[in-house]
Amino acid sequence: MFPVPTSYFLTRGVGVHRDQLTAFELALREADIEQQNLVTVSSILPPECVEITREAGVATLRPGEITFCVMARTETNEPGRRIHSSIGLARPSDAKMYGYISEHHGYGMTGEQSGDYAEDLAASMLASTLGIEFDPDAAWDERKKVYQTSHLIFGSTSITAAAIGDDSGRWTCAIAAAVFRFTERR
């Protein structure tokens, strides 16, 4: 049985290269997680899991370690094509309850649009779990106000890597990740 993560950090990166796999590697390098054996997992932020800085999280990584993360990844070799990869996160006010992490990736959105969308996804999943009534067709800003006034959601955030496809047709890769860490609970 695997332990439950106690902390996480957010990171992102963009890589460009003639080979698709190398572009991905370069994006991982920019995100500072290239030395890990990454295992992607789904969307639950464990109870009492705290955010740490990227620098603090990276300092705990060991080369070759099996590292769990929620990752968004988009690639293109089409010149001028807009790509985006975002992680959204929503935490409940009650630290003993779980939160949500969403991944959103694709083409055509700006980084800001992608980040807002990912944050909205995570907050909407948490809100529905908490029984907060909201109009799913309302604009994100309107729903965010409903979530904040409920006092059941502590906060939400996002991180995004966005890029424009390389002019010469080389592969461009954008990644964003929430990387889980494990420490002993006291």
Rank of each mutant, 00 (worst) to 15 (best):
Y98D: 13
E75R: 08
D141H: 14
S42M: 15
P63K: 02
Y100I: 11
T76I: 01
L61K: 01
D32Q: 15
S168T: 06
H84N: 06
K144Y: 14
W171A: 06
D141V: 10
I44H: 04
S7T: 12
E78C: 04
T157K: 09
D137N: 12
H17D: 15
M1R: 08
P63G: 04
H105C: 12
E55S: 14
T157H: 09
Q148N: 15
F24M: 08
A23N: 01
E133T: 15
T157M: 11
W140H: 11
A118C: 04
P3C: 05
W171V: 00
E55G: 10
G155E: 12
A178H: 06
P46E: 03
A31V: 05
A161H: 03
T22A: 15
Y98K: 12
R81I: 05
P79W: 01
A178C: 10
I159M: 07
A127D: 04
F134V: 03
E184K: 04
N77P: 04
E48V: 07
L21G: 13
R186G: 08
M109L: 15
I52Y: 07
G111N: 03
F24V: 12
A127H: 10
L121I: 12
E119H: 09
P79F: 08
S168F: 06
D141P: 02
V4G: 07
R12I: 05
V41G: 08
P92A: 11
E48M: 05
D141E: 11
M109E: 08
L152K: 09
A162P: 02
V50M: 14
R18S: 11
P47R: 01
D116Q: 10
I66D: 15
P136V: 05
V146K: 00
Q148D: 12
I87P: 00
V14C: 02
W171E: 00
I159R: 06
V50C: 12
F182E: 07
E133L: 11
D19T: 10
T67N: 04
Y107T: 07
G165Q: 01
G111H: 00
A163S: 09
P47T: 09
R62Q: 14
P46W: 08
S124C: 15
D135G: 05
Y8R: 00
A123C: 09
G13P: 00
R29F: 00
A139K: 06
Y107I: 12
F134Y: 10
W140M: 10
L152I: 00
G57W: 03
P46S: 08
E184R: 14
T149V: 12
P3G: 11
T160N: 06
A139P: 01
D135I: 07
D141F: 05
E25T: 14
R18F: 09
L130E: 01
C49T: 09
P136G: 04
T53C: 02
E75M: 10
V50K: 07
L89K: 02
M71P: 02
I175H: 01
D94S: 10
C49I: 11
H151F: 12
T183Y: 07
S42F: 14
L28N: 11
H151R: 15
W171Y: 14
V4L: 14
T129L: 06
A122D: 07
D116R: 14
E30L: 04
A163F: 02
L26G: 05
R54E: 13
P46Q: 02
E51Y: 09
T40L: 11
E78L: 15
D167E: 15
M125I: 10
S93G: 11
A72L: 07
E78M: 12
P5N: 09
T76W: 03
C49D: 03
D19R: 13
D167W: 03
